[in-house]
Design a protein around this nucleic acid. Structure first.
Length: 458
RNA sequence: AGAGAGGUGGCAGAGUGGUCGAAUGCGACGGAUUCGAAAUCCGUUAUACCUGCAAGGGUAUCGGGGGUUCGAAUCCCCCCCUCUCUGCCA
């Protein structure tokens, strides 16, 4: 094919998203160069296989070998194709000169050769497309490699509790879960939402709506004070953006899709905000980039409805403030810690007991290299609720996004992308309601009083 | 939604079949000049892949895809997008 490495945005040609940053090497720790770079598969095969094993990826050995074999074939084809094309280009120039000189017969002789070359380049180009497509599909299957600090493990039970902060409140007898409290105070109405939209689309009313607005403002203000630029992105994105952050092609069933215009409702502000930097070469001085945005988030969550997802625990539409960073590869883990401490600060100001988990290989996301989950204690439900997930994707997303920087000298390199919820509202609301319930209402934490315009619900 | 115009390098903007990866201007970078700066002058200034220890060489890319041709930014077809006017509308 012509122009290996080009991206055909807005077209089915997205399969041609290339991963040819072969020189992005091993400057960092053995693990820190992320996936989807064939050079890493080739140069650090053992480490890659170990990482994939940690993520419980089944066919690692076979897939990696297949990708490497395809890469060899790809190079062969590229070389032969380029050589044939070079000769054809040279002949074309000669033919042009001959025509001008009036030597038509000689020109015709050369044309015979160009016809042959044309056959060759065409055959090579076609196979090249096939090979690249096949390699691409295998690469898309591979999850990101876990950071060395990621604990071994298969499920949520194996996650590492990094720390637990705050005291769990002791509720009076007869304490209610939030789905009863919201009815009692008439602040969130599932039945109404069901009537106008469907299950999982609650209607916030009165103090409930005002609390939502207060939390959004609080989170955005805190983010701005921490150095984040506030972004208001579209909540519908195109297909290329879905590929850029990795929601496509694997998880398309989790997004609402407008087939008429081929747009997707965002499952998180991560998608539009990170894609802002798709196909960009960012100046070193601009790093790290800190962006924050509030958006509603839409998740189909097909088939995931069950007993313990009552009330606000899981919704089709919810509100979230997301923080996104783009960092130099050498500094991305420092930035991850910065983000984590920002999020912890929010929870502390909200006076919610929380814990920080380092997710194990089996529980972390497909695209992540290291993920911290933050969970708040929901006193009436007597369980931890995940309110934030904060991850470093290293160059895994950047590779698809073609998000790079130019080093002092040398070729462009991939940047690292990170994001975290700061914070997702529904479970925060659930915990606030449950933990602060009193006989005569719900006492809100001091930090929210001025944002809400009231200090107590009820 | 209808009609028309247009998509070229960081930006602006030439270029209607070959010598065009692409004039020119601006910007940026390096150098000269200067005590320093402005101005001026000289030079450099895209991305990706293949090849090579390197220097270098090669290929591709002028919105995307396909076609015509020995040869396409330039001609033909399809698609996408933007702008203007009309319609509609928060």
């Amino acid at each position: 094919m012509a122009g290996a490495g080009q991206i055909a945005a807005n077209s089915p040609g997205l399969l041609h998203l290339q991963n040819h940053y072969s020189t992005f090497a091993v400057f960092h720790s053995a693990f820190s160069a992320a996936m989807l770079q064939v050079s890493v598969l080739r140069e650090q095969t053992e480490a890659v296989l170990a990482g994939l094993a940690k993520k419980h990826y089944k066919t690692a050995e076979a897939d990696v070998q297949a990708i490497l074999a395809l890469d060899l074939r790809r190079k062969e084809l590229q070389t032969s194709h380029d050589q044939a094309q070079a000769e054809a280009n040279k002949l074309a120039r000669q033919i042009g000169d001959l025509m001008k000189a009036g030597s038509k017969a000689e020109a015709d002789t050369l044309k015979l050769r160009t016809a042959e070359l044309k056959q060759q380049t065409k055959a090579h180009a076609e196979e090249l497309v096939d090979v690249e497509k096949e390699q691409q599909q295998l690469l898309y299957k591979l999850p990101n490699l876990p950071h060395s600090s990621v604990p071994q493990g298969r499920s949520a039970d194996d996650n590492e509790v990094v720390r637990e902060v705050g005291n769990k409140p002791t509720l009076a007898a007869g304490a209610k879960p939030h789905w009863e409290l919201i009815e009692q105070y008439d602040i969130i109405d599932f039945a109404l939402g069901n009537k106008i939209a469907g299950a999982g689309f609650p209607v916030y009313k009165g103090q409930g709506a005002r609390l939502q607005r207060a939390l959004i403002n609080f989170f955005l203000d805190e983010a701005r004070q921490a150095g984040y630029v506030e972004i208001q992105p579209p909540v519908l994105v195109n297909e290329a953006s879905g590929y850029g952050t990795g929601q496509l092609p694997d998880k398309e069933g989790q997004m609402y899709h407008d087939a008429q215009d081929n747009l997707y409702l965002i499952p998180t502000a991560e998608v539009p905000i990170t894609n802002l930097y798709r196909d960009e070469i960012v100046a070193l001085e601009a790093l790290p980039i800190r962006n924050a945005g509030y958006t509603p988030c839409f998740r189909r969550e097909a088939g995931s409805w069950g007993a313990h997802v009552r009330g606000l625990n899981r919704l089709h539409q919810f509100d979230k403030v997301e923080i996104v960073q783009i960092a130099h590869p050498d500094h991305s883990y420092a930035q991850l810690e910065e983000m984590l401490s920002h999020i912890e600060g929010l929870l502390q100001k909200l006076e919610l007991p929380y814990r920080v988990l380092r997710l194990c290989g089996g529980d972390m996301g497909f695209t992540s290299a290291l993920t911290y989950d933050l969970e708040v204690w929901s006193a009436a439900q007597q369980r931890w609720l995940e309110v934030s997930s904060c991850s470093n994707f290293e160059s895994y997303q950047a590779n698809r996004l073609k998000l790079r920087y130019r080093p002092e000298n040398g070729k462009t390199q991939l940047l690292h992308t990170l994001n975290g919820s700061a914070l997702a509202l529904p479970r925060i609301v659930a915990a606030l309601l449950e933990n602060n319930q009193q006989a005569d209402g719900i006492a809100l934490p001091a930090v929210l009083h001025s944002y809400c315009g009231f200090s107590k619900i009820g």
